[in-house]
């Protein structure tokens, strides 16, 4: 198999969970809520997905279980920050700590138990040629992630519901004063973000390593949170950003593993690239005049109407 194609296939695997989780967080932040609990929700999704796959052997049920578990976890955050107006930053961090511990506890009986990987979506005949493999060789979550990039862009830009969600994120009091339910919209957004993080977490045992390991997401939830800022809250930039991060994460390993052209750029530089890229993007964003208008104006602020 051509090495370029091999790299691309590995890169898709690395980028997909980050992209799915980041898309969820993007919608949450567009509604004006900052949920830093992505890593924790991913871990809860991962163990739920693992357990469902272990007991049923049906990866679609496993993805659903991951989505459900992530959404349920996010409702803890929703209740604390939206109903009780707790500090979002602190609650999000607490949610990550909770998710890490809870998934470890729930996962304890599942160590030393391998499961089946999710199979590719399309029949193997379509993916015999390496070039076709690049298009048809993946399992469902990969195509789902691409679909969701488009769907979220369409929802936010072209639909009335998306406009309301953005209004809630930009100016909650105005949205409230003309009769929209700020809390309702935010609850829905937080739940959607939780479900997406749960699916992203379930991708780890289903797509990458068919086992349960504590903390198996290893910080990728935080990359997802950072990517949303990196992409300045735009779905298609998020797609590019997730694949850029996936590329550098993958290339670091291929550069270490390989000789020849792969090691022209040293692996240390690949390892440093995500951070360099983040700095460059942040500088570029801040150079633009309208930069400040891009972040949802009510991001992270509790909604406290006077009446």
């Amino acid at each position: 198999m051509d090495i370029t194609i091999a790299i691309f296939i590995t890169l898709v695997g690395a980028a997909t969970p980050i992209l799915i989780a980041a898309l969820g967080e993007l919608v949450v932040e567009k509604a004006g809520v900052l949920n830093l609990g992505v890593e924790g929700m991913m871990l809860v999704g991962a163990i739920a997905g693992f357990a469902a796959q272990f007991y049923t052997g049906n990866p679609y049920l496993a993805l659903l279980a991951g989505a459900f578990a992530g959404a349920a976890t996010s409702m803890i955050f929703g209740f604390l920050t939206l109903s009780l107006s707790a500090n979002q930053t602190a609650t999000g961090l607490a949610l990550t700590i909770f998710g890490t511990g809870f998934s470890a506890l729930a996962g304890a009986p599942f160590s030393a138990r391998p499961i089946e990987l999710m199979r590719p979506l399309f029949p193997a005949e379509l993916a015999t040629h390496p070039m076709w493999r690049v298009l048809f060789g993946y399992s469902a979550p990969v195509y789902f992630s691409f679909f969701m990039v488009f769907a979220i862009w369409y929802f936010l830009k072209k639909t009335r519901a998306g406009l309301i969600l953005r209004a809630v994120g930009e100016n909650d009091l105005s949205a409230h004063s003309i009769g929209y339910s700020v809390k309702g919209v935010r609850y829905a957004a937080v739940m959607f973000g939780g479900a997406m993080a749960g699916i992203a977490g379930a991708c780890f045992p289903l797509l990458l390593t068919p086992q349960w390991a504590e903390r198996m997401t290893a910080g990728r939830g935080w990359i997802a949170v950072a990517l949303v800022v990196f992409a300045s809250w735009k779905p298609f930039r998020l797609l590019a950003g997730a694949y850029l991060f996936g590329l550098v994460m993958t290339m670091e390993l291929y550069a270490k593993a390989g000789g020849g052209p792969l090691s022209i750029i040293p692996s240390e530089l690949w390892a440093a690239l995500p951070y360099l890229a983040t700095i460059v993007v942040l500088v570029l964003i801040s150079l633009r005049r309208d930069a400040s208008t891009n972040a949802p104006a009510c991001l992270g602020k509790p909604f406290l109407p006077s009446n």
Binding site: M1, I3, A6, I7, T10, G13, A14, F204, L208, T209, Q211, A213, E214, R215, M216, T217, A218, R220, M249, T250, L253, Y254, K256, A257, G258
Partner: peptide, 21 residues
């Protein structure tokens, strides 16, 4: 070297990179 004792996804990707080569 992958600079961690426990990151299954990274261990797996390193294995993929090596097997591909």
């Amino acid at each position: 070297y992958i600079s961690t004792w426990n990151d299954p996804a990274k261990e797996a990707d390193a294995a993929r990179a090596l097997i591909d080569q």
